Every structure is written in C-alpha cells, then in structure tokens.
Simulated assay, not measured.
Amino acid sequence: MSRQVLVIEDDDDIAQLVKLQLAGLSCDVRVINDGRAGLAEALAQPYDLLVLDLMLPGVDGLEICRRLRSEQRYTPILMLTARSTELDRVLGLEMGADDYLTKPFSVLELVARVKALFRLVDVLVNPPADAPKAIEAKDLRIDIEKREVTVRRAPICLTAKEFQLLLHFAQNPGRVYSRSQLLDQVWGYSHSGYEHTVNSHINRLRAKIETDPNEPEYIQTVWGVGYKFRNASRD
C-alpha cells in the first residue's frame, strides 16, 4: 500500500526532484507550491509525511508546523530550509518538525531521512508483541500501546520523534547515550554535525516533562558523555 506524501515547496525543480525520489519509495506524492494552499490541504486530509519548505509564499513553513501541531492528528514533518544558521534549524524543530534538511541536499540523504521517519512511525504504530504496555517512573507514565504520556496525570503532547526518544531512554534506564548513538538508534542515521538536533529535542522534552528543566529528574546530562534516563521511582 503506497504512502501518501504532501510536498509544500515553491521551488518547482526541488519539488519535482523530491517527488521523483519518493515515488521510488512507492509513495503517492502531491506537490503544492503555495503555503496557504498547502496548509489547507494538510489540514483537510491525513498524510503519512509532509515535506515542508521553510520559506513559502502565503504562509511560511514555521507557521504551517505550528498550526499542524496544534491539531490532534499527527503527521511526520521533514523540513527543507535554504538557511544555514543553527537558529533557523532549531526554530523548525521547536515548532514541531521531526527532522530537517538544509539545501542543497543529496538525494541519498533525502531518501535516508524519509525512510527513517517511516520506520519510526511504523514502530510506534506496530510495537513488538512482547513489549510492555506502559512504563512508569515517579510522576511520569508512558502508555506505549496508546502512545500517550502523562506527568502527574496531566497529558503531555509529544511529537512522534519526542515520544520515541523518551521511550528509548525509559526502556533503558541508567544507560548513558552519546548524541551520535541517539542519532543512530532513534533517528536512524549517523551524520556528524547533526548532534544539535538531539540537543533541541532533549530541551523540548525537558520543557514538557520536567518540573524544573534546569534540574531534570528524568533525562539527565552526563557531562562530557551524553544523556541518561533516571528512573526516579527506583532511586
């Protein structure tokens, strides 16, 4: 069964290149060149993936991200940006993009990122049969089957990548992971120079689940090495 992909990109050459590459992954791709029309389409029906340019006429990619993440329905978002500053990349992640590519990008990297996002969603939708249904640590509860997270019984809204990152930590309490290990095991690829993607996601997770993100109870920094999950109920 083909996956439905929406590409919102005003550069027609890039849009057609993306469409061609994703067609090779058995994707049914629709291309829209205007931000306002693209947002309307993304809200009108579910897609398996949204490939989104940052700079668009009408409504920019950041606003589209923000609007989509305010909805209950989740759609994985791969953001494309011609800007090279870290601030622009972090802004995209802060608004809810799952990943990003900086133009110009190689088609091999594009395909690798898309495959990684599809694998991530597949794992979340179809967890292993022997996996526990929930993990609890102090006031934090992760319902794996329903893909829901609560802190002190209050629901926490996470993107698929944030959920997978938190689940990866919680399933391995006490184990220290470097940024490159997390890129490989959670994002599904290893590329030097993308470690700040891990930092941004961890900062967002802490802001959502920690009482005091500066003194985290759950996701702790191991200086000079990486991060670990402390199961507070067992300390």
Rank of each mutant, 00 (worst) to 15 (best):
M1F: 07
M1T: 15
Q4S: 15
D10H: 07
D13W: 10
D13M: 13
K19T: 11
Q21V: 14
L22D: 04
L39S: 10
Q45T: 15
Q45W: 04
P46R: 13
Y47T: 10
D48V: 07
D53N: 12
D53A: 14
L54A: 15
L56C: 06
G58R: 06
V59Y: 06
C65H: 09
L68S: 09
R69M: 11
E71F: 01
R73S: 13
P76Y: 13
I77K: 08
L78S: 04
M79W: 02
L80F: 12
L80C: 09
T81P: 10
T81H: 08
R83V: 12
E86C: 00
L87N: 02
L87S: 08
L87Q: 13
D88A: 08
D88Q: 06
D88H: 13
G96H: 06
G96A: 05
D98E: 15
Y100H: 13
T102R: 01
P104K: 00
L110C: 09
V111Q: 09
K115T: 12
K115R: 15
K115A: 10
A116F: 03
L117C: 07
F118W: 02
L120N: 10
L120K: 14
L120T: 10
V121E: 15
D122K: 09
V125H: 11
A129E: 15
D130K: 05
P132E: 00
P132C: 00
D139L: 03
L140E: 04
L140N: 01
L140G: 01
I144Y: 00
I144P: 07
I144N: 07
E145H: 01
E148I: 04
V149G: 05
A154K: 15
A154S: 13
P155M: 08
I156T: 05
K161V: 14
K161N: 06
Q164D: 14
L166H: 02
L166Y: 01
L166E: 05
H168K: 12
A170W: 00
Q171H: 00
Q171R: 06
N172L: 08
R175A: 15
V176S: 12
R179S: 15
Q181F: 00
L182Y: 05
L183V: 05
V186D: 09
W187H: 07
W187P: 00
G188N: 08
G188E: 11
S190D: 12
S190F: 13
H191R: 14
H191Y: 04
H191P: 00
Y194H: 09
E195N: 09
L205Y: 01
I209C: 02
E210W: 03
D212P: 00
P213V: 04
N214R: 01
I219C: 01
Q220A: 01
V222S: 02
W223H: 14
G226M: 11
K228S: 02
R230C: 11
D235E: 14
D235I: 11
